[in-house]
């Protein structure tokens, strides 16, 4: 009965301002858009193309994804140096596993490996501040997969997911329109609804979305037009 934690845990909300989810990140992190949608035989991963540092857009064609193996793709957002460093570290280790064992890790195994690395970093001297979406296609179960992982290494398998402020705009849309057995066209239609809503309501320009698709045939990039204007009421 001597632990400090449970007492303080139930304390008033707002007390954890300094350690609340992501509140210690620099401005800009939450504006990065990560979206994931699964359907009947595919997973869509979409990530904003803007690379922002403070108030500046450094790049408008940033790729916030890395392919871990032929059937899993990781999208990431978070603190500047951490993101790519962590993603490529994971990418290299997953590829090393494939080479050593002449087989590819399943998406669920990949997700748990990523979580494990992030979790052990969390209690190290310098944790990674990276939020992740892991889209994949499980070739054994013949099912698309999507994993939501935040910088605290909370892992959840989900039918659809988002990170940052995009969550507040998109999850409600997805709650209403998503079904587990939607086909690819319907999936893209829902994604379009999400991206239009983000364009309409996010106060900054995230420079459009880069869209990648994972199916049983592997990972491909999908052409995604972002030039039309969205009417704001």
């Amino acid at each position: 009965m001597s632990s400090e934690w449970p007492d303080t845990l139930a304390a008033a909300p707002g007390q954890y301002a300094a350690c609340g989810r992501g509140e210690e990140h620099g401005l800009g992190v939450h504006w990065e858009v990560l979206l994931g949608i699964t359907g009947k035989d595919f997973t869509i991963i979409a990530a904003s193309k803007a690379a922002m540092r403070g108030a500046t857009v450094l790049k408008a064609s940033d790729d916030k994804t890395r392919a871990l193996n032929s059937h899993s793709l990781m999208a990431f957002s978070g603190e500047a140096g951490d993101t790519v460093q962590f993603a490529e570290f994971i990418q290299a280790n997953i590829q090393l596993y494939s080479m050593r064992n002449s087989m590819e890790l399943s998406p669920s195994a990949t997700a748990n490996f990523v979580r494990g690395e992030l979790a052990s970093a969390l209690r190290s001297r310098r944790p990674y501040t990276v939020n992740l979406l892991l889209g994949g296609y499980d070739e054994i179960a013949d099912k698309p997969t999507l994993y939501w992982i935040d910088y605290l290494a909370s892992l959840a398998p989900v039918p659809y997911a988002a990170h940052g402020y995009a969550q507040y705009y998109c999850l409600s849309l997805l709650d209403k329109h998503h079904h587990p057995d939607i086909d690819f066209a319907q999936g893209m239609k829902i994604l379009r609804m999400c991206s239009e809503e983000l364009k309409r309501r996010l106060p900054i320009d995230f420079k459009g979305l880069m869209v990648k698709i994972i199916t049983k045939d592997g990972i491909r990039e999908e052409e995604y037009a972002d030039d039309q204007n969205v009417a704001v009421p």
């Binding site: 009965m1 001597s2 934690w5 449970p6 007492d7 845990l9 304390a11």
Partner: peptide, 8 residues
Amino acid sequence: MAALFSGA
């Protein structure tokens, strides 16, 4: 459980 003492 210690959480019991979070009452008031």
